[in-house]
Amino acid sequence: MSVAKPLPVFKDFAMREDAFCEGHTLCPGCEEAVTFHTLGRATDNGRKTVMVMGTSCGEVSTLMYPNVIAWGRGTEEPDRVEKSVGVIHHVFESAPTVAEGVRDTATVLQDLGAWKGEAPNVVAWSGDGGALSIGLRSVLHTIHRRARIALFVNINEVFANTGFQYSPTAIPYADSSTLPNGAAAEPLDHIGLCLTAGAGFVAQVAPAFAPLFAEVVKEALACPTTAVVFVPSPCIAGWKFREGLTAELGQLACRTGLFPCFRKRAGEPGELKNVPDKAKRPTVDHYLALQQRFEHVIRMKDGKPTVVPGHESQVATIQAYADRNVERLTKWAAW
């Protein structure tokens, strides 16, 4: 696998044509829009792009007929097929498998001389509920078959577009509409699952770390087998935080160890990034207190995180999970 060179601070991206346009209906303050812009630019690489979207807020907010104007390069259909974008929505859990069908079709056509261009970019997009709850089978088996797709999983810890129901990436005690006040259960080890299933590249980066995120997207598109990129995305509507905090929360989720930046290619040492050593690592309380989904446990009082009396053990549980998560991902990086 070719090593992707670090991007020179967006200069490369600035020259590219975005495929994510005005007209979407994502919430103001939603980090998915940043992800889509990054994907839109990264796929402007001389290759045809096919995007497969499982049902998710990213899908319902960008593919609303008849105003399907959110995807595509330029103000009208481009003159060249390699600049064009084919987008398909299929059911919640199926984006990886549908994308695999797209990839195999392109491959057989290319092998037999019927597709003369470069192999296309085949991108699958799922929410974390779609990918890791109802769609875990699809994710793991597409990886197992080493399908050459780049799967992006938006992690906002809920089924957001259907009203913020529990998803298995939720950190302990996160309130959701189907699990009020949350539970002590730890989230699924989504990174470990994908690595052990055989993914060629697994990463987790919030778009809040913009240069790193762009680099990872590019690396995923270049992966010769299945690349999985988990994209922690603070959900302003579901988590109920103050406007303007999206990027800060995305970075805090990493720095506290709850969703560290991580990347690893199969067979090579991986790395955690932007997670300070334990002594300098921020504790989870500030991060939690900024979000109303934890207000039954901790909330801001006079500008300071204040544990709701009687809930000290719950905050400690979350902190312990964050610490263990860093240790676990450190081991996965060395795996």
């Binding site: 096919v50 497969v52 084919g86 398909i88 299929h90 059911v91 199926s94 498998t97 549908v98 994308a99 695999e100 069908g101 797209v102 990839r103 195999d104 079709t105 392109a106 056509l109 089978r137 699809s138 088996h141 197992h144």
Partner: peptide, 20 residues
Amino acid sequence: KLLESEHAAADYMAGVASSC
């Protein structure tokens, strides 16, 4: 193409059929 379930086979066909 061997899939892991019938559901996956139908999903996969959606990908092939819609591609071309």
